[in-house]
Design a protein around this nucleic acid. Structure first.
Length: 440
RNA sequence: CGGGGCAUAGCGCAGUCUGGUAGCGCAUCUGCUUUGGGAGCAGAGGGUCGCAGGUUCAAAUCCUGCUGCCCCGACCA
């Protein structure tokens, strides 16, 4: 992509409404535009990051055996009356009426609807276990949205729902998501910590929040330092191996880690002082087992091996990709701007032509642009008629992991400069070596 | 929902107290010079001062109502 033909409205000054780093940088780097309180447009660069994240989320959901579908944003109130949540949910739910005066709502979550889909088709225990998920925009009319997409009213959520014959099966489904989440966040370049969590109004008795540590996090969290070094399950983990998955979850949950709501002072006090971590965290995922809370009132039943019908045991599992964009920035930025982890970066390489119009730099950039493109790299080519300083500032701000600086100075020796955004390390390389360095 | 604040050019702000030609910086456009860490000079364009009503010879400024947004607190991916 040539920057001169792209749509990247970067801001030199910080809009006054932005308090925290991620919000400030998302506005400055042209990722986001606010349209109303807690409601945002995703500009091209922001959308690229969001898509990178959802791709990884999907890959790990699919790997664990979950199956993707897509449910609508608008739901009918009728369904929510069946579960009893239409009245219970309160003002957070955006209620609307259609032209026939039918009561509708903009979905804040999809337990009812997925249960309706399940009960319409599934009759036998032989079709279990089943885990269905989708990625869809949600709306929760928060009292006070803030911090950009960290807490917005409209947000993208990956929500998965598991169905099992009994609690034992549901436990395994829960463990699958537990492992999938560990892998997902690790692949996004984040160190996530599963923490015992309150189940809240959603019900049930088994729940973990996945927290990443960041100074601007909204929750206060406590954990044993060792949890930060627990190994992430590998890609070839067998998700059908019940005992193995349980052992992974046991290893992670045997180390103390809890949010302030679930904090146990005595247990924390027993940890050696040098292993105590008391910090702030951002919740990026939340998993629940809630048994038959919805299947019972909504009559989602299957016939078991004994010929008896019984309500299925369910769990739900949420990740907020739109929040993750902000969370990743909170965890990875510096004075100059965003520092994207490679897997989620909007582009792989920023190619800076420091003297556009000069035939030597133009030719070298053209060559690099094509060579990297052929190797499958997304390159943002800064071909604007700007001074070098402005290009450096832009490249640093938008945080693309690799920068290739092409100017007359190094080019006179037949070299270009390859800079790593995260560390600031620079190498003078020939054009061919630069391609290999960046594209592997 | 309680408390506090803001609304003036695309962005950041001054002007409001004490009514009288709507300003500054950045950005944008044109020209020339410049070109390795957000260039310089010269010129230009861009505003129903959030909306509605009122007071006044005269309102960005005073009064009333409304709307939007932000911050602090209790809830949430």
């Amino acid at each position: 992509m040539r920057l001169s033909r792209y749509f990247l409205p970067i801001l030199r000054e910080t809009p006054k409404e932005a308090e925290i780093a991620s919000h400030r940088l998302m506005l400055r780097a042209g990722l986001l535009r606010q349209q109303a309180a807690g409601i945002y447009s995703w500009l091209p660069l922001g959308l690229r990051v969001l898509n990178k994240i959802t791709t990884i989320v999907r890959e790990e959901q699919n790997r664990s055996g979950a199956v993707e579908l897509l449910m609508p944003t608008i739901q009918s109130a009728e369904l929510w009356r069946e579960s009893g949540r239409y009245d219970a949910y309160g003002k957070e739910m955006l209620r609307i009426r259609d032209r026939h005066d039918r009561e509708m709502l903009y979905g804040p979550t999809n337990e009812e609807m997925i249960t309706d889909i399940f009960r319409a088709y599934v009759r036998s225990y032989k079709d279990l276990p089943l885990n269905l998920y989708h990625l869809q925009w949600k709306f929760r009319d928060e009292i006070r949205p803030r911090f950009g997409t960290m807490r917005s009213r409209e947000f993208l959520m990956k929500d998965a729902y598991s169905f099992d014959l009994d609690q034992e099966g549901a436990r395994h489904s829960y463990n699958k998501m537990f492992v999938a989440y560990l892998r997902t966040f690790a692949r996004l370049g984040l160190k996530s910590i599963p923490m015992r969590a309150d189940t809240g109004p959603i019900g049930g008795d088994l729940s973990h929040e996945f927290i990443i540590l960041a100074a601007t996090g909204e929750s206060e969290v406590f954990c044993h330092r060792d949890v930060l070094d627990t190994p992430i399950p590998p890609a070839d983990t067998d998700f059908d191996d019940v005992a193995h998955l349980q052992s992974i979850v046991d290893k992670w949950t045997s180390v103390y880690a809890a949010t302030s709501e679930m904090h146990d002072e005595a247990a924390f006090a027993a940890i050696p002082d040098d292993k105590k971590v008391s910090a702030r965290g951002i919740e990026v995922g939340h998993i629940f087992y809630f048994g038959t809370k919805y299947s019972e009132p909504m009559k989602a039943t299957v016939t078991g091996p004994d010929g008896h019908e019984r309500p299925v045991h369910m769990g739900s599992y949420g990740i907020g990709p739109s929040r993750l964009v902000a969370a990743i920035i909170e965890a990875s930025h510096d004075e100059a701007g965003i520092v994207w982890p490679d897997p989620v970066a909007p582009f792989d390489v920023a190619l800076l032509n420091l003297k556009p119009g000069d035939s030597a730099t133009d030719d070298a950039c053209g060559h690099l642009y094509r060579a990297l493109g052929l190797r499958g790299r997304d390159v943002l080519y800064d071909d604007r008629d700007e001074r070098p300083g402005a290009k450096f500032a832009t490249a640093d701000l938008i945080g693309v992991p690799w920068q290739i600086l092409v100017g007359p100075r190094s080019l006179s020796e037949g070299k270009v400069e390859v800079k790593r955004r995260a560390t600031g390390e620079r190498e003078l390389l020939s054009i061919e070596d630069a391609v290999v360095r960046v594209a592997g």
